[in-house]
Simulated scan of single mutants.
Amino acid sequence: MMESNHVLDAKGLACPMPIVKTKKTMKDLEPGEVLEIQATDKGSTADLQAWAKSTGHEYLGTETEGDTLRHFLRKAGAIEAEGVVIPEISLDEFKEKVDKNENLTVLDVREIEEYEEGHIEGAIHIPLGEVEQRAGELDKEDVIYVICHSGRRSELAAQTIAKKGFKQLFNVVPGMRDWTGKTI
């Protein structure tokens, strides 16, 4: 069992709230301190791993107790790595492009269960936790529209691939949660 300096209760919260609360709590910790995040959102594991990597914090692991996931993060040194700023496109603007049948590269970074419930036709599915390893499946020359449930995981995914040399990225906000267009 891992030891922590602080505990954050994020049980019952769905994406993006575990990340939002973690980010806020981490600001109050001293470098090197460990935060335990208790969550029930199954997607929180991949989300917190990616967030930790993009901010320079250390993901220490996850323990499971019943339905509760206990994630452990160690705060980075005094200078936190700042993520790359990714431009956003509103869901309405993005939907116009989809409706016009523009040749779009859409990257859906939700978990498989979410993707299978309904996704935009032609979307490339790479869950957030796999984006870094699978970025080579994407073309660096394409304009890529990254989408998730609410816009938080897609921002993390876009930051991850931007660091690999992708230049034309847009985070679709708010994401599939409010999508009214056709899905398959």
Rank of each mutant, 00 (worst) to 15 (best):
P31W: 14
T45P: 03
F72H: 10
I79Q: 14
K163R: 15
I144Y: 03
V84R: 09
G61K: 09
E96T: 12
T45Q: 13
L169Y: 12
D92G: 03
D139L: 06
Q159V: 15
T68N: 12
T180G: 14
L69T: 01
A50G: 13
K95L: 13
E132H: 11
E36Y: 05
P87N: 11
R153M: 05
H57G: 01
A157G: 14
F72P: 01
V172T: 14
H6T: 10
E58K: 14
L107C: 06
D67V: 05
D108R: 04
Q133D: 10
A123H: 11
K164Q: 15
E137K: 09
F72R: 09
A14W: 09
D41L: 10
L48A: 10
G61Q: 11
H119C: 02
M2Y: 15
V7F: 03
S90H: 05
L138C: 04
H149M: 06
R177L: 08
E121I: 05
K75E: 04
H125F: 13
Y115M: 02
K53R: 14
K182Q: 14
C148H: 14
L138T: 08
E155I: 00
L128T: 12
V172K: 09
A50Q: 12
T105F: 00
D28G: 08
E63V: 14
E65G: 01
L13C: 07
I86E: 01
F170V: 03
M17W: 13
L156Q: 14
R70N: 12
I144P: 03
M17R: 13
P127M: 06
V109P: 02
D108Y: 01
E36F: 02
A158K: 07
H71I: 03
I120D: 00
K27L: 09
E93F: 01
L138I: 08
D67H: 02
F166E: 10
G83W: 00
L35M: 06
L13H: 15
P16K: 13
L35E: 11
P127Q: 07
A52V: 08
E82R: 15
K11R: 15
E137S: 03
A46R: 14
A123E: 11
G129R: 12
K21Q: 15
L104C: 07
K100F: 01
P16D: 09
T62P: 01
Y115T: 01
M176A: 06
I112S: 13
E114S: 08
Q133C: 01
D99S: 06
T180C: 04
I89H: 07
